[in-house]
Design a protein around this nucleic acid. Structure first.
Lengths: 154, 154
DNA sequence: ATACTTGCAAATGATTTGCCAGTGT
DNA sequence: ACACTGGCAAATCATTTGCAAGTAT
């Protein structure tokens, strides 16, 4: 196999673009692989491996879960996919863009909002100064209560 | 059984104090229970259920893991114990103090440092303002690279 | 004596791995 | 043809649950 590219190659515009990218990296385009990719495009946001396996519409499993995980892993190595863990529950996968994404997750309803590294920089800086830690909310988002759940709490 | 107290009752000074607290709440003091409590005191910091079951010294399992989890759950309901999830890997349990604790975890080496809600308030405020989220790093710490691992990274 | 507890086994949920048959190229 | 893949079953990891036997009170 050709050497895998660890750094994100480019923002994939379409399922076909990704599929070609795969071909270019010595990977084959199988039905399962195609399903994972197109489902990821159709989802338009973070989804679980199980959702991908079910083909979004929650119907019967169209692709074996093991294959989904194996494909997601490879796609992630190619920089086409990324995933994060929002509290309890399964990991969430989505197409990777050219810009890094960080998140905030609601502990109660599971809602996830995206944040850009730039707008989180002041926070990162504060933590860096105070604790010497370089925090990232890309793989493990910040967890708390979203506006809605926070109100319901009072 | 007596109504369980959800709010933290008091800071437990000693294993005996906790054990008495349990008795006062209609719980019995069994060998397994005693082991969990004393191990928690001996640990002096966050440990996994497995470590507790092994009796710290990593020897053979002294208490069944299921019992450890069951006990930790009850102790947590009583406000004597708390736990958090630092990235991948098992949850970490420790004695609860009177003050709430938040954490920062290193994604690479697993190191966890404690932070007080007060020193994190500016960050909480920033997030509140910017996203309307009320974040807490008590159950899901902030994750990143600690000073040591960050350097090794460059 | 009785209810609370335990150990052990089996079940869960998320994810990974072994294997061999199937298929892109 | 041949290496890459997929499906399926079994294995892992962390945690939970069912149960019958054991024990604190």
């Amino acid at each position: 196999m050709t050497a895998a590219c660890a750094a994100p190659i480019l923002t994939a515009r379409s399922p076909e673009a990704v599929l070609n990218l795969l071909r270019g990296n010595g990977m084959r385009v199988s039905t399962a692989r195609r399903a994972v990719v197109t489902t990821l495009f159709a989802a338009g946001g973070p989804v679980s491996a199980e959702q991908i396996a079910a083909g979004l519409d929650g119907s019967r499993l169209e692709v074996d879960l093991a294959s989904v995980y194996r494909n997601l892993e490879k796609l992630e190595q190619l920089g086409v996919v990324r995933h994060f863990h929002a509290g309890h529950g399964p990991g969430r996968y989505e197409l990777a863009g050219e810009h890094e994404r960080e998140y905030l997750a609601c502990d109660r309803c599971g809602a996830v909002v995206e944040a850009s590294p730039e707008e989180l920089e002041p926070i990162r800086e504060e933590i860096r100064k105070r604790f010497g830690y370089e925090v990232r909310f890309t793989h493990f988002p910040m967890v708390g209560l979203c506006a809605g759940c926070g109100e319901a709490d009072l």
